Amino acid sequence: MALAYHKKLDDSTEFAIWKIEESAEELYAQLQLRDHEQKVLNGLNNGKRNLHWLSTRTLLRQLLNTKHYIDCQVDEHGKPYLPGSPYHISFSHSFDYAAVMISKDKPVGIDIEIIKDKIERVAKKFLVKEELDFIEDKHKIEHLYICWCAKEAVYKLQGKRNVSFKDHIRLQPFPFNQKGSFEAKLEADQECKTFDVFYEKFENYMIGYVAGCSEILTSIPDITETQVNEK
């Protein structure tokens, strides 16, 4: 069983993490793909890119709990969506895991990243001085990954390519913890939106996720979560 983690934020919003243990052929057998999707898949290199594409679609099918065809498309900005469906969706993947977040009533964004020391070398490319100043030295790498995942999640929620992590998404100071939340602001296209971003460490990965604006989701939600034991 590849479902590794499942979290329900409220009655309409949830996300799950899939551990990619199957072959591409095994994942493919669980999907219903039409010609335009097959064309996309054929254009991917064999290996992780192929597995990531297949595993996010497989996980989406599990979360939607349907045997029917799922018309998952991508808009001009690269944001996935479901035509004719009330669900908002967001995909992410990193090494051996894929993540999918869905909601019936609010836009969503999720990011999962394996934790590696190399993020320290690029921190100044996505954080301003005021953000770098609250990073705790004792937990620097993990703290930086929380910031990256938070900005990536907000970026995916808004879904437009003309947004800069450093110039348009600002994080309010927050102390390091294994899980928690903090406020982020998106200032782009002459608009300013505030979000409550949630994060947690999962094994050697960091997860950041956001659902709607903070006027909708203003505190850590009353959640249920499931850790699936690996065989």
Rank of each mutant, 00 (worst) to 15 (best):
Y5Q: 11
K7A: 15
D10N: 14
S12H: 15
F15N: 11
I20W: 09
E22L: 01
L27E: 09
L27K: 05
A29I: 00
L33G: 11
G43Q: 01
N46Y: 03
L51E: 03
L51D: 03
R57Y: 03
L60I: 00
Q62L: 12
L63K: 05
T66G: 03
K67D: 10
H68R: 12
C72F: 13
C72P: 15
H77L: 06
Y81K: 01
L82R: 03
P86Y: 11
P86E: 08
P86N: 09
S90K: 10
S92N: 00
H93E: 04
S94L: 00
A99Q: 02
D105C: 12
P107Q: 02
P107D: 02
I110A: 10
I110Y: 13
E113I: 06
K116E: 03
K116H: 03
E120T: 14
A123R: 11
L127M: 10
K129T: 15
E130P: 01
E131C: 03
I135Q: 00
K138G: 10
K138A: 14
K138M: 13
Y145V: 07
C147R: 01
A150D: 06
K151L: 05
A153N: 09
A153G: 07
L157D: 06
N162G: 15
D167L: 14
P175E: 13
Q178E: 15
G180C: 03
A184L: 07
A184Q: 07
A184H: 07
D189E: 07
E191V: 01
F195R: 05
E200H: 03
K201T: 09
G208Y: 06
G208I: 05
Y209P: 01
V210K: 06
C213Y: 11
D222V: 08
T226Y: 13
V228D: 14
